[in-house]
């Protein structure tokens, strides 16, 4: 009873491949699927190094404020960055629920959870933009001090990643709506969910290293 038959919309009916006695999820059933997923893990590894460099820069420049605003003064609005953190954590959860729905072959729920994730992602980016605009109006721009350069580069790069992820996810939602859950769409959805969780991990470090460090210092 461990063989499930999938009919992919790209034609062939085939028996699920197995590994160590376990039937593999749909996204691993095509020839390219597992390769694409491995490739994406390696991309995430390189992206991790990119963020690592930005974190190192921020750490080193954190105290170089040139007589201007310090991190303690800048991050006094605890509710704002905590809200951003909770929103992103929740969106990470909802995108994992999307994968759960996909593996139960529930197209409606899969699309529903992806839409919830996109909405949460948009509200995260909105909050972050509001925060940046607020800083800008107070004169805390990127060119004010080395600390602010490091801050805007690190948090801004993360924000760009999230914005890109939103566009990417919307395009995948349209493809699922059009072609349903097949091996190709399953692989695409699994990869975007990996990307989304990765951004959540990076944010947890921004929350800890940038914002909380500012509060504690």
């Amino acid at each position: 009873m461990s063989t499930a038959i999938h009919k992919s919309s790209h034609g062939s009916v085939h028996e699920s491949p197995k590994y160590k006695g376990k039937v593999l999820p749909l996204e691993y059933t095509s020839h390219e699927g597992p390769l694409n997923i491995l490739g994406f893990w390696i991309f995430l590894a390189t992206d991790l190094i990119l963020f690592g460099c930005l974190f190192a820069t921020y750490f080193v420049l954190r105290t170089h404020v040139d007589g201007g605003v310090t991190d303690k003064e800048l991050f006094d609005n605890i509710t704002s960055f905590t809200a951003e953190t909770v929103i992103l954590l929740t969106s990470s959860f909802t995108s994992s629920l999307a994968i759960f729905a996909m593996r139960n072959n529930n197209k409606k729920r899969l699309i529903g959870w992806l839409i919830v994730t996109v909405i949460l992602g948009l509200s995260f980016v909105g909050l972050e933009l509001r925060e940046f605009i607020e800083y800008y109006h107070e004169g805390y721009t990127m060119s004010r001090s080395a600390f602010l350069s490091g801050f805007f580069t690190l948090v801004g790069t993360h924000g760009c990643h999230v914005s890109l992820g939103i566009i990417w996810m919307i395009s995948i939602i349209t493809q699922i709506a059009r072609y349903g859950i097949d091996a190709i769409n399953a692989r695409k959805t699994f990869i975007i969910s990996l990307y989304w969780h990765f951004l959540d991990i990076v944010w947890v470090f921004i929350f800890s290293v940038v914002y909380l460090t500012g509060v504690v210092s």
């Binding site: 461990s2 063989t3 499930a4 038959i5 699920s16 197995k18 376990k22 039937v23 593999l24 999820p25 749909l26 953190t85 909770v86 954590l89 929740t90 990470s92 959860f93 994992s96 629920l97 759960f100 996909m102 593996r103 139960n104 072959n105 859950i181 399953a186 947890v204 929350f207």
Partner: peptide, 26 residues
């Protein structure tokens, strides 16, 4: 038969636990 071929639970317990843990840690 489900997408992962094994009997999938109806309640995403693993995901819920993960979410709860991540909130607690934060």
């Amino acid at each position: 038969p489900t997408m992962n071929g094994n009997k999938a639970p109806h309640v995403p317990m693993k995901n819920l636990v993960g979410f709860l843990l991540s909130l607690i840690l934060t």
